[in-house]
Amino acid sequence: MTLARLAYASNHSGLAAGVLEDILHVSLSNNKRDGITGALIVCEEDFFQILEGERTAVSACITRIMNDPRHQKINIIFAGDVQTNLFPAWSMHSVERDVMLRYMVNGDFNPAHISEGEIVSLCLEMALTN
Score class of each variant (00 low, 15 high):
Met1Thr: 15
Met1Pro: 11
Thr2Gln: 06
Leu6Lys: 06
Leu6Ile: 15
Leu6Glu: 11
Ala7Lys: 04
Tyr8Ala: 07
Tyr8Asp: 02
Ala9Ser: 15
Ala9Trp: 08
Asn11Glu: 08
Asn11Arg: 11
Asn11Pro: 00
Ser13Ala: 14
Ser13Gln: 13
Gly14Tyr: 13
Gly14Thr: 13
Ala16Cys: 03
Ala17Trp: 03
Ala17Phe: 06
Leu20Asn: 01
Glu21Cys: 05
Glu21Leu: 04
Glu21Gly: 11
Asp22Lys: 12
Ile23Gly: 09
Leu24Asn: 06
Leu24Cys: 06
Leu24Met: 10
His25Tyr: 11
His25Asp: 13
His25Pro: 01
His25Phe: 12
Val26Pro: 00
Val26Trp: 00
Val26Leu: 01
Ser27Arg: 02
Ser27Lys: 03
Leu28Asn: 11
Ser29Leu: 09
Asn30Lys: 12
Thr37Glu: 02
Ala39Pro: 02
Val42Phe: 07
Cys43Met: 12
Cys43Pro: 01
Glu44Phe: 05
Glu45Asn: 12
Asp46Asn: 07
Phe47Pro: 03
Phe48Tyr: 15
Ile50Met: 03
Ile50Gly: 01
Leu51Val: 11
Glu54Lys: 09
Glu54Trp: 02
Arg55Ser: 14
Arg55Cys: 10
Thr56Lys: 09
Thr56Ile: 09
Ala57Cys: 13
Ala57Arg: 13
Ala60Leu: 04
Ala60Asn: 07
Ile62Met: 08
Ile65Arg: 06
Asn67Met: 06
Asn67Val: 01
Asn67Gly: 14
Asp68Ala: 12
Arg70Ile: 09
Arg70His: 07
His71Phe: 11
His71Pro: 07
His71Asn: 14
Lys73Trp: 09
Asn75Glu: 15
Ile76Val: 15
Phe78Tyr: 13
Phe78Trp: 13
Ala79Asp: 08
Val82Ala: 07
Gln83Trp: 01
Thr84Phe: 10
Asn85Gly: 07
Leu86Tyr: 05
Phe87Ser: 05
Pro88Thr: 07
Pro88Ser: 04
Ala89Pro: 00
Ala89Phe: 08
Trp90Val: 01
Ser91Arg: 05
Met92Thr: 03
His93Asp: 02
Val95Ala: 11
Val95Ser: 10
Arg97Ala: 02
Arg97Met: 05
Val99Trp: 05
Met100Cys: 13
Met100Gly: 03
Met100Thr: 14
Leu101Tyr: 02
Leu101Trp: 01
Leu101Asn: 08
Tyr103Glu: 06
Met104Thr: 14
Val105Ile: 14
Asn106Glu: 15
Gly107Phe: 01
Asp108Asn: 09
Phe109Cys: 12
Asn110Tyr: 09
Ala112Cys: 03
Ala112His: 14
His113Met: 14
Ile114Lys: 11
Glu116Leu: 12
Glu116Phe: 07
Gly117Lys: 11
Gly117Tyr: 09
Gly117Phe: 09
Glu118Tyr: 13
Ile119His: 06
Leu122Trp: 04
Leu122Arg: 02
Cys123Phe: 00
Cys123Arg: 00
Leu124Val: 05
Leu124Gln: 12
Glu125Lys: 09
Glu125Met: 08
Ala127Met: 02
Leu128Gly: 12
Leu128Cys: 04
Leu128Tyr: 00
Asn130Phe: 02
Asn130Thr: 10
